[in-house]
Design a protein around this nucleic acid. Structure first.
Lengths: 254, 254
DNA sequence: CGTGACCTTGAGTAGCCTCAAGAACTGTGG
DNA sequence: CCACAGTTCTTGAGGCTACTCAAGGTCACG
C-alpha cells in the first residue's frame, strides 16, 4: 500500500486544488490561478465564461494535519471552505452523543454550506490525511453572488448538489442492504475521484472501516466482511486501504 | 377520526399559508398578503424588516387534489414552490425502481431547491391531501436575490435548512432503531406543526403507515407495531391517523 | 352499504449486530 | 533498520431486531 496511484493523476486545469502528495509536509500553498468553484459546481458547463475571479473570494489557506480538526461543531460560521488537497469527514453529533458521519469530502469539494442559516457549524470537520483548505468568507461570497449572475448560479448549484447528496445517502440507508450500500458508496467515491481527474478504477480509501460503517449505518465488522466478500467474488481487489474496482457492472447490479 | 384539531389552529399572520380545511374543494386561492418565505426561512428573526414583497416573486397558485401530482421527477426546473395549505411528499426513484420518500412537506415549507443545479426535478411531488401551492419562477428568485440582501439571506438559509434536514434523516436512518426513528420523526413533525402555529400535541398524520415506513426505512408492519407499542406504553394516543402526544419526554429519551 | 385500501397482529426467518480473539498494519523510538 | 505498542482489520459464533408472509379487521369513499 506504499505506492499510490500518482501516475494516473491528471489534474484538471483551473480546478483550484492540487494532487495530494504522498507524505505532505507543512509547505504553504501557492494559490491556484483560476476559479476554485468552477469544476466542482458548474454542472451548467464550463463554456460560459465566468465574470468573477478567485482573488475576489479566497481570504486564506489553511493547512490541517491528518486527524486534526478544521472546524468544530458549534463554532461560528464565517466562511465556506474548499478542499484544495487531501480529504476530510463531516461528523455531526446528536445531543445524546450518537455520532454520524454526514459526508466525506475529497479535493475540489466544498464544505460548510449547511451552516449558513444557523450562524454555527453543525458538523466537526476532521482531516483524513494531511490536507489543505481555502477559506471563502461568506460575506464576500454573498457580495459576489449579488454582483455576478454566473457566480450566483454556481453557488446555488453547489447548495443543490449538497441537498441531493444528503437525499442520496438517505436513500441508500433506507432502501439498501449492507453490501448494496457499500457498493453504492464505493462507486460514488470512484465517480467523484474520476470527476477530479483521478483514476476511477483504483484509489486509496482514506477513511477507516469504522468510519465507513458509521457513515453507512453498519458495524465495522460488516464493512470488513462485505469487502472480503467482494474480493472473493472478484468484484474488486482489496489490499488494506488500496482498492481496485474490477467488475463495475456487477457492483452496480447488486 | 372524523374530527380534526381545527380548534387548536392559530394561523400566524403573514405566513402565506392557510389552515387546511377539513374537506377542501376546488376554490381558488386568494393570495396571502405578506411574505411567503418569511416564517419558514427567516431563522435570523423576523425583526429585520424585509425589503422585498411577495408580489415580486409569486407567479401563480396551483391547486392539487389529494393523490395528484404537482411535479414529476424529470420535469424541467423552472420554479420553487411553497406549500400554501395542505401537505405533500417528495418521492425519489432509483434507476432500479427503488422508491424513497425524501421528505414530507407541510404548509409554509418550500419545495424544489434540490433541482437548481440539474435543470430537472429529482423528485415527484404528490399531494397527501387537497393542497395549494404557489410557484416562484426561479429567474425571479435569482433576480430578487441579487437586488435584495435580505432576500438573499433568506434564500440561502432555506437551502441550508434543506441540507440539514437531509443530514438529520440520514442520521436517524444510520444510528437509530425502529422505535427511535419513529419517535424522532413524530416529534420532528410535531415541532414543524408547532412552528406553523398548529398544535404540537395533537395532529393528523396525512401519510399512510406505508409512506412513513418507506421514509424511515421500515416496513409498514413495523411502523404499525411501534405505534401500537407507544400507545400501550401511554407515550401517545393513536386512533387511526389522529395522534396525540402524551409523554414527550419519554419519547425523546428513547 | 359494499368495495378496496389501509391497518393490525401473529409466526417464522434472515440479516446484521455484538462479543471475542487473533492477525496485519502504522508509527515511534532505540 | 528493527522491535514494540497501539490501532485497525479480519473472521467466527451466537443472538436479536426487523423483515416477510399471512390473515383478519377497520376505515374511507362512492
Amino acid at each position: 500500500m506504499s505506492v499510490q496511484e500518482q501516475q494516473t493523476i491528471a489534474p484538471l486545469t483551473g480546478i483550484g486544488h492540487r494532487a495530494p502528495r504522498l507524505r505532505a509536509v507543512g509547505t504553504q500553498t501557492q494559490r491556484a490561478p483560476e476559479s476554485t468553484l468552477r469544476p466542482s459546481s458548474m454542472p451548467f458547463g464550463t463554456d460560459t465564461p465566468l465574470d468573477w475571479r478567485e482573488e475576489d473570494l479566497v481570504a486564506s489557506d489553511v493547512y490541517v494535519r491528518k486527524g486534526a480538526v478544521l472546524l468544530y461543531r458549534g463554532s461560528p460560521f464565517t466562511a465556506l471552505y474548499v478542499v484544495r488537497s487531501g480529504s476530510c469527514k463531516s461528523v455531526t453529533t446528536t445531543p445524546e452523543g450518537q455520532e454520524q458521519i454526514a459526508a466525506f469530502h475529497i479535493a475540489g469539494e466544498i464544505l460548510g454550506a449547511e451552516a449558513i442559516g444557523d450562524r454555527v457549524h453543525d458538523a466537526t470537520i476532521t482531516a483524513l490525511e494531511d490536507s489543505e483548505f481555502c477559506a471563502m468568507p461568506f460575506d464576500r461570497v454573498q457580495a459576489l453572488a449579488q454582483k455576478s449572475h454566473d457566480f450566483q448560479r454556481t453557488l446555488h448549484a453547489t447548495f443543490a448538489r449538497e441537498i441531493r447528496r444528503g437525499r442520496t445517502l438517505a436513500r441508500w440507508l433506507a432502501t439498501m442492504r449492507a453490501e448494496q450500500r457499500l457498493a453504492s458508496f464505493l462507486l460514488d467515491l470512484a465517480d467523484r475521484y474520476c470527476a477530479r481527474g483521478y483514476s476511477s478504477r483504483e484509489f486509496v480509501l482514506r477513511m477507516s472501516r469504522q468510519d465507513i460503517g458509521i457513515h453507512l449505518g453498519l458495524s465495522h465488522e460488516t464493512v470488513s466482511r462485505s469487502l472480503s466478500s467482494f474480493h472473493r467474488q472478484s468484484l474488486m481487489r482489496v489490499r488494506g486501504r488500496l482498492l481496485t474496482i474490477i467488475d463495475r457492472k456487477a457492483l452496480q447490479a447488486l
